[in-house]
Design a protein around this nucleic acid. Structure first.
Lengths: 64, 64
DNA sequence: TTTAAATGTAAAACTCTTTTGACATATCAA
DNA sequence: TTGATATGTCAAAAGAGTTTTACATTTAAA
């Protein structure tokens, strides 16, 4: 599943570490999700969307 | 996390088994999620939203 | 150029999700 | 009443996501 986390995070001018702190996960978790090693849990998806001022449905794009 | 799966499924007139078939998971998975034993994976959340003609953001309500 | 911050990556351990198989109850139609 | 469908639940195991720890490279600023 594709996502726009990296783009949105950079647009907001924050580091992976800062986003990780806001979402209460580690930096490595943010990095892995940005680089699509795996998808986040549903709860983390909502946390990411909230902290990036968007919605789950626009932040993530399931393949078809 | 709360969700509106049971209400939406009944409104559509389909059984847990039918929704499970559409989403390619077992009936027990649908049942457990409807009764909030656990949250679905992000991919399954999108599959559920699609098959219930709604969005992830409206189908699920993270607590606060 | 030097230094610190930022990012990438990987393995192991851990936790959560999903499946499998089973058994139970309730409802409704024949 | 009988049989089929729908739902609830549980335990064990398998599958998938997260955390931790550690080390590496890249980038940006001084």
């Amino acid at each position: 599943m594709k996502n726009q986390i990296k783009e949105r995070r950079k647009a907001k001018g924050i580091s992976q570490q800062e986003l990780a702190n806001y979402c209460k996960v580690t930096r490595q978790t943010i990095n892995a999700i940005e680089n699509e090693k795996y998808d986040p849990s549903l709860q983390l998806a909502f946390d990411l969307a909230r902290n990036l001022n968007t919605t789950v449905d626009t932040l993530f794009m399931p393949e078809q």
